[in-house]
Write a protein that binds this DNA or RNA. Sequence first.
DNA 1: TATTTTTTGTGAAACCTTTCACATTTTTGT
DNA 2: ACAAAAATGTGAAAGGTTTCACAAAAAATA
Lengths: 216, 216
Amino acid sequence: MRERKISESTIHRLSHYYRALNTLEKEHFETISSKELAKREKLTPAQVRKDLSFFGSFGTRGLGYPVKELKGRIAKILGIDRTWNVALIGVGNIGSALVSYKEFQRQGFNIKVLFDSDQRKIGSNHKGITVLDTDHLEEELQKNKIELVVLAVPASAAQNIVDHVVHCGIKAILNFAPIKLKVPDDVEIRTENMAMELEYLSFTLVNNKKGERKKT
Amino acid sequence: MRERKISESTIHRLSHYYRALNTLEKEHFETISSKELAKREKLTPAQVRKDLSFFGSFGTRGLGYPVKELKGRIAKILGIDRTWNVALIGVGNIGSALVSYKEFQRQGFNIKVLFDSDQRKIGSNHKGITVLDTDHLEEELQKNKIELVVLAVPASAAQNIVDHVVHCGIKAILNFAPIKLKVPDDVEIRTENMAMELEYLSFTLVNNKKGERKKT
DNA sequence: TATTTTTTGTGAAACCTTTCACATTTTTGT
DNA sequence: ACAAAAATGTGAAAGGTTTCACAAAAAATA
């Protein structure tokens, strides 16, 4: 009864569709065709239709997809038709930037607690949230019913903290430390490494990838 | 000149191998087998060998790959055997965090100039770099021989700025604005959207993609 | 030196993702 | 009311990526 495997790419495109639909709603569109949606996201209409078809039939032939309803459906699929309690661990450079990152709030990711191990930071206030001591991590994660953890600590501290996070039942972690962390199979961890994206760009520059021909 | 299409995944894995090799070098390993490298990166040995084989034969049968040399080869492939002049546009939340992001410096991405349009920020100093006025963007990008641009401005300002950036010949952009930007075909643009990664995690949570067991 | 073990490099197979093409359904126009 | 146009949903084809499996080469062992 295991549902069909949906690819990561499909999920990411769903996020994009959601944003596009949001814009379309503001522009007072009632319906949108796969052709037009694809154009806005630089994809093919077939790709859009196939992606959506994994989850059901949301459109009307001859007309397209109802903007408002489709937006709601995608929100439900992505699990953003609700709010999530998020903890942010590490209030350094990246961490403090993320506290104010509007896009989290906007999609219903509520940063409820902040943690740091630096005594000078503990007790201080960021956007109205008090920084707690990582010594009380597990206790506070449970108390605040945290479901999602964002990790923005130095690489050297990351594995130890992630072990505690996993220990108290968290199943989803967004990691900004540039290191491969070990977690059990039932925990999903995504690592954002911004330098790696620059490396990809650097590769395209030196290999003049743009305008190149394929195959041998 | 036989160029073939290398997939994005391969390039990203190359970045991972590079980091692993760096660690191995510090641990005084002279050689590493595809098996061991794969284990460290949670991949298959065949994947490692195939990835490397696109660029040449770097290993010795029966022995493995020479750590130091392979690291150098990958650096060359990725274009990080040199430094790059980077401009960072937008010194807000994310922007100021990126100025201090160690991982950029470490891989040879040198932030040489900062820009903002806010009069209160212009002239101020971040980590020894003075913030310049975006009004002089094109002029300063050229003067400083900038090759790579990191964009951390609000979504509403992004397209206008990217047009200027493209106009003065920049071919690689890392964008943090949560919006799809239009650039010519010969410009590579990568968009980092951290909320989208949380949405992916949220999807895995509601779809119970990972194990069923819940603790407590 | 000869044999066994290790490990690469690589075609071929298996698997996964995207695109194609078209029957089907609904809307629009006359 | 009917024909033409628009657009979905989906099997099948095409294209791409990963894994398999094994010959070949080098190292280790006896």
